[in-house]
Design a binder for these strands. Structure first.
Length: 398
DNA sequence: TCTGGGGTCCTAGGACCC
DNA sequence: TCTGGGGTCCTAGGACCC
């Protein structure tokens, strides 16, 4: 599987690298507090409340602790677990530093999230040698400059590179040479394929497919019958076919915020205060990014996890909390009967465009004054966080 | 065991227009 | 008086990812 090539890479040969940081949040926390080294650590919410695990150290994983697991459950599995609240600002800083290193190695870099990236190495063979040599150097640079460990998968397309990095964690390197994609994937459990989650895996198991190779054996027609359009996609991915095209980061399509209450809530005033805080948060981000939104979506979840969304599209795009709040309020009033207690509220904006594009549409006098007020509010929030300042209607949510 | 918060993409139906 | 087909926009829900 893992082969050391003796020749350089020909320019025409597509080489995609997937760099994935090893338990990124935990690794950053260990930089901040080295006493965490060697201990089972989980970054995430409180074990007493409704928090979940965001990132678990390998010591913790040995006890069965996993991402997205309720923290209380993690504590039961591993009583000596050290729980750390996230230092999210630090993660963003380190992520930016990583992106800079990656850009030295590839002309096109796609940060897929804070802790993983796709690099298109096609044509860089003369500069860095074989993919494995380049990967080894990159990993050394990352470790030397950030002291953060990572794993790297290399393949002829993004899917193969990603599966490879996943497989060699932690601190691994794995190259899948061109032509061996299908052989590489076939013996793996289908859950290893990105996009195959819990539900789809279950349905595949039901028709007798447990390994990636089983899916290929079933054939495109059978998958099409069971999964429709998604089936063809599934088939090609299991065959190792996927886009090799790496593109730079694209502008966000939606910006939102949500809040899960410590206890389910049916108090209309508390819910309204939450909507107000969420609207402020979203509006503040929209303005910081210089964009406006035309669609407002309200999300609400009941105690049994039944989740609904309701959306409305405004006549013109907005970036201010009152307009967003008003829309969200209206949706809640129209949809929520007031009987069932709510465990989560969310406000998401979409239909995003650059705000400069609508300047002439909104050339009212009040605009400038309002902008100055918002700028002042954003500055204060930037300094003190969202608890620093709130309108009167947001009181009671903190 | 009882499920966060930030997102993306896909599907499907209905409205509306030509 | 009954009715096609295509395209686009909007809404709702669901699966998935980190």
């Amino acid at each position: 599987m893992l082969q050391q090539s003796t020749q350089g890479v020909t320019p025409a040969e597509t080489v995609v690298m997937h760099v994935d940081m090893d338990c990124f949040y935990v690794s950053v926390e260990r930089l901040l507090d080295p006493s965490l080294n060697g201990l089972p650590v989980a970054v995430g919410g409180s074990p007493d409340g409704r928090g979940v695990v965001s990132s678990a150290s390998y010591e913790a994983r040995r006890f069965g602790v996993r991402s997205a697991m309720p923290m209380g459950q993690a504590m039961r599995l591993c009583p000596q677990l050290v729980v750390v609240r996230g230092s999210y600002g630090m993660y963003a800083k380190h992520s930016a530093a990583l992106a800079e290193i990656f850009r030295r190695y590839a002309p096109v870099v796609r940060m897929a999230s804070q802790d993983e990236a796709y690099l298109d190495l096609t044509g860089t063979g003369r500069l860095y040698g074989t993919p494995l040599v380049a990967a080894e150097r990159l990993r050394r640079d990352v470790l030397a400059e950030t002291r953060l460990p990572c794993s790297i998968g290399i393949g002829s397309n993004r899917l193969v590179a990603k599966v490879a990095s996943d497989l060699c964690k932690p601190k691994g390197l794995l190259w899948v040479p061109p032509g061996s994609e299908e052989r590489f994937l076939a013996p793996l459990p289908i859950e290893r394929i990105p996009g195959v989650g819990h539900r789809i895996a279950e349905r595949l198991h039901a028709i007798g497919a447990r390994r990636v190779g089983d899916v290929v054996t079933l054939g495109a027609a059978t998958l099409d019958k069971h999964f429709g359009e998604h089936g063809r996609d599934l088939y090609s991915r299991c065959s190792g076919v996927s886009s090799a095209h790496v593109t730079e980061h694209e502008p966000a399509k939606s910006i939102g915020a949500e809040e899960t209450f410590d206890r389910d809530c049916s108090d209309a005033e508390v819910l309204d205060a939450s909507l107000s805080a969420l609207s402020e948060k979203v509006a503040s981000r929209l303005r910081a990014e210089g964009i406006v939104a035309s669609t407002i979506t309200l999300k609400y979840r009941f105690h049994d996890f039944e989740t609904h969304t309701a959306a409305t599209t405004l006549a013109y795009p907005v970036d201010d909390e009152l307009a967003i709040l008003e829309a969200a309020r209206g949706l809640l009033a129209a949809k929520w009967g007031g009987r069932r207690a709510i465990r989560l509220l969310g406000v998401t904006t979409s239909g995003l465009t650059e705000s400069s594009a609508q300047l002439d549409l909104l050339a009212e006098e009040g605009r400038e004054k309002r902008d100055r007020l918002h700028a002042a509010l954003d500055r204060i929030r930037g300094k003190h966080g969202y608890g620093g300042i709130r309108r009167a209607s947001s009181e009671g949510t903190s």
